[in-house]
Design a protein around this nucleic acid. Structure first.
Lengths: 239, 239
DNA sequence: CGAGGTCTTGAAGACGATCAACAAACGTGG
DNA sequence: CCACGTTTGTTGATCGTCTTCAAGACCTCG
């Protein structure tokens, strides 16, 4: 099968055959993580970045009073801790939000790519810039949108991200999170997260049971969120 | 003078002479922006990225009800819209928060750097990754810290960023923002931002008048913010 | 000196946190 | 397959934080 990574990169800009071959020749060793397990811990200096092959994981930080903020959610195809290649020391943790299968890619390989494949380097750089754009959008959501709009925005974002890798669309997708985890993504208490989810349900926008999200009214959800996917930079362009 | 950019990059990793010369040979044309002026507008496709030589500017997005969220503050030496080199189309705006002097760097030059100078490319990539880490920290502040701690954290962060370029330190620095702008950074109303600032004043942590911030109790400010500068990745390392 | 922006303060109300209790779902071992 | 314990979901009540509205003081800059 074509790896989700190649699929994602090629979506953003032309990949040369040589680069495609290189990506395909990466050591195919994989590792699994159980739900709730830490994939990378704060303070670590991993020697490899991990490509998420399946499952969901999240970046998070904890503050003094013990509460947790999830700052990003990653889906299959995401190069989860590509930043650690240059940042070296983890300033946050990464937790598996479902069972995850990952493929470690040695930093030495990434270094080699930057030395020899400028085009591929730009595409990898680009993918980290899109993650940054997502962070900005989360900041806007937290600072200036209502909690309901914030949740709606997150659900729209995941729909688009999952569509790229063929794991969902505007009608729904697998969403195996607890309400407490959603609360940590939105910066709310678990109780209030529940009330916000209930609100979206009662508005007839979504159904969410047994880890499966159904979007009953995509247009309504998008309108509530004021969702504009421009920040995900989906167009294929020369880079 | 050594440009603030060279100073900043060299702080993060060794710069080769060749790379240093290239940076010094950049066209030295500058442009000025008045306080409040838009430096880049949403939807634009700039042909160059702008290096901020002096002043403060901020990234921002506006939502439907007209309110604004500032998602980042940049200081002298920051390569403000380096991301536009790869993202092409601006998904947010950049506003001058004081008088700003900038130096435009053509995207073609950046492209050329990625083709010929892998080491410099990694350092530039790194600088965008640090911006991402700052975004994550802002998310933690918004989601899980009290408003007072959030403001304290921002002030600590600016102190460290300004120290790197020699424009301030733990004792204070120039802070020419209005309370409304601070509110837009913190995701608060202007009225509440005022009350939070007043709170820090009354705790004896800061003095802030006439665009000049004095930090009266750095340890106290740091403690309130639970500030740990690890996320700014200040160590010089091989990349 | 005047005008517009910014700062400051009070009062009322919305939003979200916390505490508490119970129900439902899930997982595990018997 | 059932029993039981644990985690997750659900709801109500109360409290604190932050927003909004409003008004007046203070600046600053033409």
């Amino acid at each position: 099968m074509t790896s989700p990574l190649i699929r994602k990169l090629a979506q953003r800009g032309p990949l040369r055959d040589e680069e495609r071959r290189l990506l395909e020749s990466l050591p195919q060793t994989t590792r699994e993580f159980a739900t709730g397990e830490d994939m990378v811990r704060i303070g670590e200096r991993p020697a490899f970045s991990t490509l998420l092959l399946s499952g969901y994981c999240g970046r998070y930080s904890t503050v003094g009073d013990g509460s947790r903020q999830i700052t990003a959610v990653h889906v299959a195809g995401d190069f989860v801790d590509l930043p650690s290649f240059l940042l070296h020391k983890m300033d946050h943790g990464i937790v598996a939000l479902s069972r995850c299968v990952v493929m470690p890619v040695a930093h030495s390989i990434l270094h080699d790519i930057t030395e020899r494949f400028p085009n591929l380097t730009r595409l990898l750089w680009l993918s980290t810039l899109i993650d940054t754009a997502i962070h900005r959008e989360w900041l806007v959501s937290m600072g200036r949108r209502s909690a309901a709009a914030q949740l709606a925005h997150l659900l729209c974002e995941l729909a688009v991200k999952l569509r790229i890798v063929g794991l969902g669309d505007e009608r729904g997708y697998r969403l195996p999170f607890t309400q407490g985890e959603v609360a940590d993504m939105l910066g709310l208490s678990a109780v209030h997260a529940h009330r916000v989810i209930k609100d979206l349900r009662e508005r007839g926008l979504i159904t969410w049971r047994a880890g499966k999200l159904t979007i009953n009214d995509w247009a309504g959800l998008e309108a509530l969120a004021e969702f504009d996917p421009a920040y995900l930079h989906l167009e294929t362009e020369q880079r």
